[in-house]
């Protein structure tokens, strides 16, 4: 569902930009996020936020937020504050759900999300000022723990792969950046 919305955005975007984009690079980010299987008495799928922040920790783009999106009366939003860094930096100012960002929680396993040319919220990678940024992946589980992994990335983006191993709420998280302009 998220992907579909994202693709729709992308199609619209490419349509409008095709006049100006010639042989420019097309940056993309792919995240492989492992949700670990946990042997706990009461298991709930984690809420996960993936966002891009600048050097001063200000959120500049939302990639994805996974939460209990289909509960009645938007009840699932109640616990978004427990993604406490994301909530502070971005969530609390959003009008949820956000098309292209909000999505359902995921079961244990590896989940791939990919963002070509723009973040889930439509922020165009190529339009961000050059500099140091962070991709943050924050996970929190009801009656469980919280964990955040942060990947330093430099804009403009250049092809690279980063990998980090979570300790309890996240498994291996891999960030793959491709910029087709880099030869």
């Amino acid at each position: 569902m998220v992907r579909l919305t994202h693709q729709a955005c992308l199609a619209a975007f490419v349509g409008t930009l095709s006049l100006s984009a010639s042989a420019e690079a097309i940056p993309s980010m792919t995240l492989d996020i492992e949700i670990p299987r946990l042997a706990v008495a009461e298991y709930h799928r984690p809420y996960v936020a993936i966002w891009l922040a600048d050097e001063r920790h200000q959120a500049v783009a939302n990639l994805n937020v996974w939460y209990d999106i289909s509960m009645a009366n938007q009840e699932g939003e109640t616990w978004l504050k427990d993604l406490r860094q994301w909530w502070r930096r971005s969530g609390r100012t959003l009008d949820l759900p956000v098309d292209g960002v909000s999505g359902a929680t995921r079961a244990p396993g590896v989940h791939q999300v990919s963002f070509t040319q723009m973040a889930g919220d439509g922020t165009v990678f190529a339009q961000l000022p050059p500099g140091q940024y962070f991709i943050h992946v924050e996970a929190v589980r009801e009656v469980g723990g919280r964990e955040m992994l942060s990947f330093p990335v430099t804009f403009p983006l250049s092809t690279n792969t980063y990998s980090q191993q979570g300790q309890h709420e996240l498994g291996k998280v891999q960030l793959t950046i491709q910029n087709e302009g880099d030869f």
Partner: peptide, 8 residues
């Protein structure tokens, strides 16, 4: 002190 939704 920090709540996500109105009417909390």
């Amino acid at each position: 002190t920090v709540l996500a939704t109105e009417d909390s």
